[in-house]
Amino acid sequence: MPVRSSGFVRHGWAPALACLATLLAGAAQAAAPHGESGEGASFPPFDPTHFASNLFWLAITFAALYWLMSTIALPRVGEIIEERAGKISSDLDKANAMQAKAEEMAQAYEKALAEARKNAQGIAQAAREAGAKASDAQRHATEAELAAKMAQAEAAIAQTKSGAMSNVRDLGSDIAVAIVTKLTGQAPSPAEATAAVDQTLNRG
């Protein structure tokens, strides 16, 4: 026996028997007053001869039909229809769930993509900044080094120059002493000569 989903079948037997009983009672009623006397009636549907047999067989066939329909056919067809409706709705639910999941995944993907893009931008920015900073630092370092070298060179030049200048002064004063000695025959003191050379150097 299949599982009964609809409630109507539970009292399948009682109405079938009731139908049978009603119609059989009718058959007896119909047969009682007329008996077999209706042979003379000309119009067959109104001829009571076969009323009893018609009712009898109608009761049997209709009760059988009712019984077959209420216990076998209708529950089964109802079940098939319900099953199909259930399957369709569950399939639809499943499809909806899957679609929601797919959408969720698409959203997650979008989010990940946006995040990755943001990260990439950040990284690029950082790299750019780091690069700039490094090159700045290098430039500063190079500049400082160059400046130091230049200062050193300048100092060396100044030293050389002052060395040279002092050499020139010594040389000048020697020359001046020699010239004065040659001209005057009298040798000036080196201090005088140096003073004179300094005076000339400072002027010129």
């Binding site: 058959a27 007896a28 047969a31 077999e36 001869t49 076969h50 009893a52 047999s53 018609n54 009898f56 067989w57 109608l58 066939t61 209709f62 059988a64 039909l65 077959l68």
Partner: peptide
């Protein structure tokens, strides 16, 4: 009672 199986009965059975 006359409960003969008639042509009506036959067609009732066919309907069934």
């Amino acid at each position: 009672l006359n409960l003969s199986f008639t042509n009506t009965s036959l067609w009732m059975v066919i309907v069934l």
